[in-house]
Amino acid sequence: MKIDSRFQTRPNTTICLTIDGEPVMAKSGDTVAAALLAHSGNASRLTGKGSPRTAFCMMGVCFDCLVEVDGHPNVQGCMTQVRERMAIRKPKGFRTLSGDTEDA
């Protein structure tokens, strides 16, 4: 993947969070889904069949933005505001009831 982001780079990113352990800067007022899209053009999750997905509707309808947030699985990224030191993990595979999707 060579596309860093499908969006223009923004000034004033002041919130520090992690995505799969990697430190990433986001903007105050961002949703988790917006922060993921701003950071990378890559998938934010893999489906049960292993297909890459990113947020699609940004308004809580499509559930394609599901990620793990601070250990809680299946969180709607577009409905969740970023916080300082938030730990986001990208789900890989079928939805599970517990967090830590690497074991899924």
Binding site: I3, R6, G41, N42, R53, T54, A55, F56, C57, M58
Partner: peptide, 10 residues
């Protein structure tokens, strides 16, 4: 469904 395809409203 590919990353890089979204709704315009999004």
């Amino acid at each position: 469904t590919l990353p890089g395809v979204m709704s315009a409203g999004a």
